[in-house]
Design a protein around this nucleic acid. Structure first.
Lengths: 338, 338
DNA sequence: TCGAGTATTTGAGACGATTCAAAAGAATCT
DNA sequence: AGATTCTTTTGAATCGTCTCAAATACTCGA
């Protein structure tokens, strides 16, 4: 109810509003006695600084918006935690917004964030091409693309997905698989397309004749992975691939579950390798091999770039940071038992 | 760079700032011709309304803060999605803040949100008693407690955890288990304590002599669950409980994984029942029985209460909504094979 | 005690949008 | 035409805080 303002504090402390503001922002230039008096008044009144008014004057808030493709995918949660960890040390708040893969929803979040004059936006865009993001940046809200191709017009952090696909493919080939399936999603998603391209090249480079099948689902979810798993389990053993490379761990977990319910063994009947290396991958009943992305680091770096741009808008040159993915071998792609 | 304001728009459209404001907020009272002219100017300049300034005048923003205990637990993500779904229809934005179980961090988030004069706060508090939340509410930021005991001084939504514990216990008893272990966490967490109390009463009510063991971990994570699982797997079969009731699904998944790596079968060697019924529970290699909480509904209801309070601050009476949990039986607690 | 120099404090504008009483303009009726 | 009513538009005041030039209060040496 009773929201106190700086003026009431000033009155009670018998100083001017300017002094109260100074106590709040540059306490060292205020004499200790006055400072004390002001603090007391603040406490007595339960005064809380109105950030809205503050930022009207100052220009921008210390809030960063992080718009992710899917909060229910732990990968993005980890990216967020990385960003939050850095933000914490710069008295900056990260707010998490979920576009859920819906361009309309993404747009509304972006509008809201821009209207609130956030300090900047980190985003995993739903669509590859998005002129709106460039307009946004041009109007003065710095944007950093996360886990997404660099357009050159803004900063971005990403992981080499083509390389990731290649590593996964090479690993399966090396384990003796010659009939591999790529379990993917909408090829309009850049990440999916790149991972596919990577595994394709690895399979093509194999000495023996190796074969790559492909199957795409409309979304990269556990349920979709399970559905594809059902399909594979239904195939006669001779036709069934011996290994599957999934576009992300969620799908891989779905596959794994389908195998279990049909009594097929992993990796003996089907080796599986996922992508992202979310914590649930290691915790799965058959621990999942996966292509690890530096999830927290991705978030950390993204916000570092943003803070840098905010700190020195003039000197700032947009950069595209690319990380290398890693292979994590676990049981789901272990050597097949004799 | 160039951030346009309402004045520039007014100039270009050759009207007063008041008219531009009207076009933005009550377009129907402006004549169509003028309205059109203003819209054109807005478009030409790429004008975006400054919400900060707007809310300085209007008082509060249309943003709701949702402070959760652990973003990496899908349970909270689902609660958030429920809240978001409702908010979406009330042109309100939900921002997700992660306290990660740390009171200091929770406090900083609350401060930030209050300073930003958010419309209200939904929170799963880290600690049971928190006078700070009451002060916050007294200073004018409505607070709704989520999945937490009602203090009577504010609104809350929760699920009857005692009942949940009871149902889980009764289910295991009914399945013939007489040696049950409760795998819990810090008893300072109200939810944990209640679930424990529930299962205790169910075991006590069993006709045959049933025994309840208890084991607490410092956190309700997969890793902690796995650690306890290792311990159980190491026990001689006669001493080992035949069923485990976990304080949440994360721990249950950990347990499950430990069983698998030690070659113990679920449910034959150890039946497991979790809590929350997160999606990963159904997707686990051995689909997990669980006590289902209406996750999205929890979020929906919480924000409903908040919106109600904001709409009619005077008539509003604080309410404590309590939902009933459900039992979902899956393979992990199926009848033991003969 | 005076004056120069330093340390504090003051208070009048911003900042950008909203409101609302009042002015201006149209339309309708005698 | 003039009075009356209704519709639009105007613009000054307001929200709470910050900034900065100017005013005031100290300190210290002569």
């Amino acid at each position: 109810m009773a929201t106190r303002n700086i003026k009431e504090v000033a009155q009670l402390a018998r100083v001017s509003v300017g002094t109260v503001s100074n106590v709040l922002n540059r306490p060292e230039i205020v004499s200790p006695a006055t400072r004390e008096r002001v603090f007391e008044a603040i406490k007595k009144l339960g005064f809380v600084r109105n950030e809205v008014a503050r930022h009207l004057r100052v220009g921008r808030s210390r809030t960063v918006g992080l718009v992710v493709l899917d909060v229910s995918n732990p990968f993005f949660v980890d990216v967020a935690q990385g960003a939050e960890a850095v933000a914490d040390g710069h008295d900056t708040m990260v707010v998490l917004c979920n576009s859920a893969g819906d361009p309309g929803r993404e747009r509304r979040h972006l509008d809201q964030l821009e209207q609130q004059r956030v300090m900047g936006i980190l985003i995993t865009p739903v669509e590859m091409e998005s002129p709106y993001l460039e307009e946004l940046a041009a109007r003065g809200t710095p944007v950093v693309l996360v886990d997404s191709p660099a357009t050159g017009l803004q900063c971005s952090v990403a992981v080499d997905d083509r390389l990731g696909g290649q590593i996964a493919g090479a690993h399966l080939i090396e384990r003796g698989h010659r009939r591999i399936i790529f379990v993917g999603g909408p090829p309009s998603i850049k990440q999916v397309a790149d991972r596919h391209a990577g595994v394709t090249s690895a399979v093509a480079a194999a000495d023996g004749a190796a074969e790559l099948l492909t199957r795409s689902a409309p979304a990269l979810t556990v349920a979709e992975g399970r559905a594809i798993g059902e399909h594979l389990a239904g195939l006669p053993a001779e036709e069934r691939p011996t290994a599957a490379f999934c576009a992300n761990d969620m799908m891989a977990l779905g596959l794994l579950q389908a195998m279990a319910t049909h009594g097929l063994r992993v990796p003996d009947d089907l080796a599986i390798i996922g992508y992202d290396d979310i914590d649930f991958a290691a915790a799965a009943a058959v621990p999942l091999s996966s292509i690890r992305q530096p999830r927290e680091l991705l978030g950390r770096t993204a916000i570092d770039l943003l803070l840098e741009e905010v700190a020195e808008p003039e000197e700032h040159r947009h950069r595209q940071v690319i990380f290398q993915p890693d292979l994590v071998v676990r049981e789901s792609s272990a050597l097949r038992r004799a």
